[in-house]
Amino acid sequence: MFDYTIRRTLLAIPTLLFISLILFLLLDLAPGDPTANLPLTIPPEVKEKIRLSLGLGEPLAIRYLLWLQQFFINEPLHYLTEITGWDLSGDRQRVLSWQSRSPVADVIAQRIPQTLWVVGMSYVVGVLIALPIGIISAYRQYSWFDQVGTFVSMIGFSVPTFFTGVLLIVVFSVELGWFPSIYDTTHVVEDWSSFVFQVKQMIMPTMVLALYNAAQISRFMRASMLDNLNQDFVRTARAKGLRESTVILVHVLRNSMIPVVTVIALGVPTVFGGAIITEQVFKVNGLGQLLITAIQANDIPMVQSLTFVFAILIVAFNLIADILYGVLDPRIRYD
């Protein structure tokens, strides 16, 4: 298992390098010019100079290698400098945003908390709702609870988040006026009433995403429970005289969680992607919104870095899912 983990981790490195190359080539192919948004009064020669100063004059391969060096060596060194206080990075060039000329990593670091609060919370809420619903739906298959659950799940993952988001805004902000329709990211929690406000402004975006996540995970949980409920070992557990709750929540659930846990792990990075739209709807200035504005402004370093961060998340959580599978299933762990 340990060897397996090491091997899988090492394998992730070439995978990520390959992804970074593809991303780089794709973005290079994309039409667009970072100077296009500059005022028309700037003469073409000056624009050309700006382009050169952004490093666009170099050949593709050089630009890619430079980016690699900046992303994998300069940025980590810079980070180390910041936390240790030793000067490790010297005057190494960091990845800079073309829009703001500030380091991409700093901007991303600024935006992460907003995304984590809203998206992370919604994923946790989604999972916490989904698991019991899935378990009960399977145990009481075809009961009214199961039917309602099936219906709500179908709505949950067939209706897009931009629709549920807007619907919630219309009902709860515009009509009822219960919650703010725009997420105020400058809000600071310092006392009880500001905490209440924070909860209020988080409720809608969190719920929109939670519904979407819960819909899928509860279906998975249900299917996985159903797979196991009719297994012979469940009959054995009952024949031992165990309580029904022990039979279901220990014997059946422990087996059913194996695929579900991996699905939950695999879902973490896709949540960041799914959040892009929800963040736009509620004006949460998290990573999703950052990506959208960067794309609109042709800010290639920012887009490149963000998409690559998403790629890292996907690869990392794939790895985590695999490892969890081994941890949870002794048949794999001991082979």
């Binding site: 012979d232 070992f233 009959r235 054995t236 014997h251």
Partner: peptide, 15 residues
């Protein structure tokens, strides 16, 4: 006490 037919599937694989 009860013993069942298939010992492959009658024991819980994860315990």
């Amino acid at each position: 006490g009860f013993i069942f037919q298939d010992p492959m599937t009658s024991l819980n694989p994860v315990f």
